[in-house]
């Protein structure tokens, strides 16, 4: 057991160095803002095809398609309230679309039996916005939870894995604390340790930077980047924090008004002249996305007679 574990660790570090050595790979330059498929050399781990989803009468997504390449950080950006979290829940199979499909490693997530879906979910994990740590367990047990549920490993080995994951996020010293005793940023880091405990192939990050102070934000940015590289994880980051996302993402999709309005590498997005995109990236208060909620003409409503 001891030996195999060491071997496993060695694999990790070796993979990490490998990954770092070719970190300066060329992003294939491509025609940005066309509807043509990305001509990606890597295979896509997740494919979303012609997805349509609505809540009641409100349409959240109307015919969106995107690909999430293996081993890369893919960001999905967009203004608040357009249901970016919903997209992650669709990918994770927690919600069912009205139309279209989500393929995870070639399997249609929403056509899987419950058992097959659970098997697929063991290969992915999700970092929730609130952290979603189990409030009745301490940090150690939180991280150990999935290991105890799904692996038949003896407790001594689980303990080591948990401590290593906690070390990776810098919270080994907080193992015995309850989640309520941690700050928001530390909660999210603990949740990150829990998310990578089972060594998933893909991690879905739901708004990882929201409501963090600059230091925690920096820590999280670094962690997501480092973990993706070291474990060659496929990462999907949903966020509206433009600068942080652009600093770590390999590829970015921007969603607004139920559609994907732009996609490309961070560089391509920065240079784009699409007005809607510009407003979002530069954070201008008024533009194609209006400052005012749709209303009757101002003057008429002020001067108009009461009915």
């Amino acid at each position: 057991m001891q030996l195999s574990w060491d071997e496993r660790e060695w694999n990790h570090s070796s993979r990490a160095t490998l990954q770092k050595s070719d970190a300066n790979f060329k992003i294939p330059v491509q025609d940005f803002q066309t509807d043509s498929d990305m001509s990606q050399e890597q295979t896509a781990l997740v494919e979303v095809n012609n997805l349509r989803f609505s809540r009641g009468s409100r349409v959240i997504y109307d015919d969106i398609s995107l690909k999430i390449p293996k081993g890369k950080v893919t960001a999905i950006m967009g203004p608040s309230g357009i249901g970016k979290t919903t997209l992650l829940k669709l990918i994770g199979g927690q919600l069912t679309p009205d139309k279209g499909e989500v393929l995870f490693d070639g399997q249609n997530i929403h056509k899987l039996s419950r058992n097959a879906l659970f098997e697929a979910r063991k290969r992915m994990s999700m970092l929730f916005q609130s952290g979603a740590l189990f409030t009745d367990m301490n940090v150690f047990d939180n991280v150990a939870f999935a290991l105890r549920e799904h692996s038949e490993l003896p407790e001594a080995i689980i303990r080591r894995i948990v401590l290593m994951k906690l070390q990776a996020v810098g919270l080994r010293g907080a193992a015995q604390l309850m989640p309520s005793e941690l700050s928001g940023g530390m909660q999210r880091r603990a949740a990150l340790a829990r998310a990578i405990a089972l060594e998933p192939e893909m991690v879905l990050y739901d708004e990882p930077f929201t409501g963090q102070d600059p230091i925690s934000m920096g820590v999280l940015v670094k962690l997501i980047k480092d973990l993706s590289d070291a474990l060659s994880l496929t990462s999907v980051v949903v966020s509206h924090d433009v600068s942080e996302v652009l600093s770590i993402a390999d590829y970015v999709y921007v969603i607004a008004e139920q559609r994907i309005i732009a996609h490309g590498t961070p560089q391509q997005l920065r240079q784009s002249d699409n007005p809607q995109l510009r407003q979002f990236i530069d954070g201008e208060p008024d533009g194609p996305v209006p400052f005012h909620f749709p209303a009757d003409a101002y003057k008429e409503e002020l001067l108009g007679a009461h009915d």
Binding site: G92, F134, T135
Partner: peptide, 15 residues
Amino acid sequence: MKSTEQLSSLEMMAV
């Protein structure tokens, strides 16, 4: 547990 997404989180951990 629902509002802090602990139940969703269990789902996503295949529990």
